[in-house]
Design a protein around this nucleic acid. Sequence first.
DNA 1: ATGCCTGAAGGGTTCAGA
Length: 287
Amino acid sequence: MRVATWNVNSIKQRLPRLYPWLDERRPDVVCLQETKLADDAFAELLGEQLAQRGYKVAVHGEATWNGVAILSRVGLDEVSRGLEGAPGFPLPEARAIAATCGGIRMISVYVPNGRAPGSEHYQYKLAWLEALREAVAGGPQEMVVCGDMNIAPADEDVFDPEAYIGQTHVTAPERAALGALQALGLRDVVRDRWPHERVFTYWDYRAGMFHQDLGMRIDLVLATSPVATRVKAAWVDRHARKGSGPSDHAPVIIDLDEAPDGDIGPVVPPPSAPAAKRGAKKLPQAR
DNA sequence: ATGCCTGAAGGGTTCAGA
């Protein structure tokens, strides 16, 4: 099963890149961020093309900013929009959506940017991350939290740590918040696979940053151990960042081996366990 | 000059992104 996450920076603008990419990479599950499109417009604009490719779609969008979605052709169950207990700014924003796909609880997130350390946006970012941690805690065994975390986990994840001192995305509180999330048992599967490589997922549009490979790794796939042990490939699709009209983020692609019991695809609960206990659980609620 | 790009809203420019 192939899982991908991609901050598309406006799905409407990215259509000429999205469809060829789907046809080339053929992901089974796609977590999208920054769709920047209302739900009805999403269905109207993409519904037919995605259905033709076999995707079911779950969206949680807004007219202008933010917006997340999950596309899946291995089942799309127990869709949960938003994040229980998450703060707003001041109103809740469309930054999280969850669904169970192929037996795995998938959560697509677009973490607030934070703008400047100490700002109200920064406080919002930290509070939102805490709400995410609480929501993920107590979740099912097979879970993937992926998307634009807007945090570079370590200095190796930015092109020039010196240049980022005092900037958002690298501060200790942000990294601690990410660490607290991972402490629930979530592994950073791309870094696990490439422990010493220079791996970025975002490059500023300006000043030829991509062509000089001056970027950051802020789009992450975090997986619980039962999922992480199935990872056969984990990579950043830099090709999608090239050419005309790219997003400023590249997709991250994960290939999973079959589950040990061969239980892949639509969830079929065993006779002894009701569906609700088989990873078909709703996005865990905050306390 | 954070605004060297890009996108969105709403107008002829401003805000947001990381």
